[in-house]
Structures are given as structure tokens and as C-alpha cells.
Amino acid sequence: MLSTADANLVQRDQAIAGMKVVMDPDALLTILQVARPELDVTSVQLTYLRYRPTRSCLGSYQVRIRDTVTPMLAHVTAYHGKAWGKLSIPIDDYHHIICQDQVLISLFPGDAGLPSLAGLINRDSRQDILKTLLPASAEAWPADIETLAYKPQRRYVGRINFEHGNSVVVKHYRENEYPKAALATTIDCPATARLRTPRTLGGSQHHQSLAFEWLPGRVLRREITTTSAAHSLYACGAALAEFHTLATDNLKHRTASIKADRLTAAAKTITHLHPPLASLAQEIATGITQKLSQEPPATQRIHGDFSLSQVILMEKGQVAIIDHDENVCGDPMEDIGHFIARLLRYEHTRKITHNQVELLIEAFIEALRKTV
């Protein structure tokens, strides 16, 4: 059942007729139990929501199957009428359920935005893809795959585990994102005592996939509640400062106009989510846009999506920065601000206290100042 706030949002956005199904786990559960009785679905849990006002709404779910430990992944997308009409991806009957009100339910690995994902997940066809990505490792087959991250209709990240014990990371992109990612992830960064980035091992435009070396270590996100958290944040800040000095090569620039478009979109989303904040959101977006237009173009390499999840703490104090799909030429303050904003979320979710957050931010900033 929808909360009052969610029900009001559904009512406001009449352009997306099927939003209720996306946002209401009970509605999805009923549909799955009727459409796929052989699965014996017992419950569903919403884990991620992506909302584009008047255009689409996508929800990721974990689907619990009776007598099965690992949940099935699924996502539900409600489209605007015009966007629904443009869907041209062949849709099979097993992995996709077409519902009324322009709603599509996709059962993993079915994905209308990543039509080749099923080939990567299937063990037999996966070997052919890996032989293209990693021809030098042909003797290592067969190989299993472990899902690390999945953004439906955008990107899939998996860890390939070979029988001899080695691992690589494979990323599968939607078609229009592969060229940018292939360029952004090509980094000339020899390992130093402070910084490490994953080497690109292979790529295939035909399969829309890239392969990277697997870097072992501890994800920083899981370390912020430990006694050594401040030390880890200091090491992270020092590594980021060094990363910002790397060559930009042929990276695209994140211009003021691109930032302005994002701010406008954010203000529009806030307006739909909570109308009383509409004027304030627009005022803030306009003010920031005006300031950005007066700044000179930035020319340093930035991560573009920097957070605690993109930092691996390795042995001997070395820090690995991963996931470089969004690398661009820009202002390093974007990475710093984005990182701190993500860190502040942990205070709001009560995982750490305000004082702990302040100490972690102080350690992070101190390292940046000393390293620059």
C-alpha cells in the first residue's frame, strides 16, 4: 500500500499512468503471483527508485521465492505514453511481463536497456564474450560470475571468478554509454605508494563490455564505523588529491551548460516530489548556474561520481579508486563536495553520529590540503 506522500506524487504525475505499480510492493507482488505462479513468489522488497518527472519511473526489487535463499532481481518501469511507443527492444515472454498502463516488469537478466545482458549471465554464451574481452585468458575457462552492482537499463557490474582462482571485473553498458566509458576508463596511472587504479584488460564494442583487473581490499563504505575510520579517510583524501593530478588525455569537459542542465532537472524533480519547495529549488538552481557561468573552465581530471563505495583500502596503506566511467575534465571541488554529501547521509541514517562525521570530514580535508 502506498504512503500518503507517495499516493499524492502518483496523483500529481498523470503523465506516467503506471507509477503506482512501480512504487507499491503489494501491487507488484499480486501481479507476479498471478502472472508467474510457477515462481511461488512470497514477498518483494523495493531497493532502488529512479524517477524522471513526466517521463518514467523505475523501481528495483528483490523478489523472494519460496524455499530459495538468494532473492531474484527484478525491476519495474512505468513509461510515458510516447516513451512506451519507442520501445523497440525485442521482448521475450519469460523475462518480461507487459502490464496495462505502459508498465514493463523485467526479471533478471531480462533488461530492455541492456538486451545483451542475458548473454553475459548465461554460462555458455558468457564464455564466447569473455574470449573476446580476454583472449589471452582463454585457457582459464570455464568461469562463474558474481553480481557486484546493477543499475537496470544502464549498467551491470560482475566479478568473473576463474577456476584457477583469479578474478576480473566485467562491466556491461547500454549502447550509448559504452564509447564514453571506454574513453574515461583509459587511465595512465602507474601504481604509486599512495594510489592505485584498475587496469583495463579488454573491451568489446560489439558486446558493450569492458574488463578490468580485480583489486582486493576493503571497501571504505564498510570502514566508517571502525576505530581506524579517520585514518582511512585521511588516506582517501591523499589518494584523491593525487588522482586529480593525472593526465586528462581526451576526456570530455563537464561544462557550465551541462551542470546547468543537471541543476534544472534536479529543481524540476524537487518540484514534483514536494511542490512547496518549487520556488526555493528554482531559486537555488538559478543562483548556482549564474555563478558557474562566471567561472573559467576547469581542466583537471575528476572522478565524476566519487563516494565511499569507489574507494578500496589495500595492503601497505595503498588506496585504490575504482569505477571511472564518469571521469571528465572538471573542478576537483565537485568530487570533494559529492564525497562529503554522501558521507553526511550516514549521519541522517544514524549509522554514525554528527561528531563522527565532523572528524571524518576533517581528516579527509586535511589530507587534501597537505597533498596538494
Rank of each mutant, 00 (worst) to 15 (best):
345 R>Y: 10
197 T>C: 13
79 Y>C: 07
5 A>F: 08
37 P>H: 05
157 V>L: 12
24 D>W: 09
189 C>G: 08
53 P>N: 10
123 R>Y: 00
77 T>S: 09
211 A>S: 07
62 Q>V: 06
220 L>C: 06
31 I>P: 03
3 S>G: 15
208 Q>D: 03
59 G>R: 13
151 K>R: 12
243 F>R: 05
167 S>W: 00
34 V>A: 13
138 A>T: 13
189 C>W: 03
233 L>N: 03
131 K>M: 13
255 T>P: 01
359 L>E: 11
94 Y>D: 09
281 A>E: 00
283 E>M: 14
172 H>Y: 01
36 R>E: 01
372 V>E: 03
212 F>H: 13
78 A>K: 05
64 R>C: 05
15 A>L: 11
330 G>H: 12
350 R>A: 06
275 P>Q: 09
144 D>S: 15
204 S>K: 11
331 D>Q: 06
79 Y>P: 06
118 A>C: 08
97 I>D: 00
231 H>D: 06
323 D>S: 11
368 L>R: 07
33 Q>A: 05
188 D>S: 14
5 A>W: 10
187 I>Y: 08
325 D>E: 15
279 S>H: 09
363 A>F: 00
265 A>Q: 13
312 I>T: 12
53 P>S: 13
218 R>M: 07
59 G>A: 14
224 I>E: 01
201 L>R: 08
235 A>L: 14
369 R>Y: 08
317 G>E: 08
293 S>V: 03
331 D>C: 10
246 L>T: 07
72 M>P: 00
276 P>W: 07
158 G>H: 10
107 L>A: 06
175 E>D: 11
114 L>M: 07
250 N>M: 04
342 R>C: 06
282 Q>I: 01
281 A>H: 10
289 T>M: 02
361 I>D: 01
100 Q>W: 04
104 L>V: 14
250 N>D: 12
193 A>H: 10
18 G>A: 06
220 L>K: 08
160 I>K: 04
313 L>K: 13
82 K>T: 10
343 L>A: 11
209 S>G: 03
368 L>C: 03
144 D>K: 15
105 I>H: 01
233 L>I: 04
123 R>F: 01
254 R>S: 01
162 F>I: 09
217 G>K: 11
190 P>C: 12
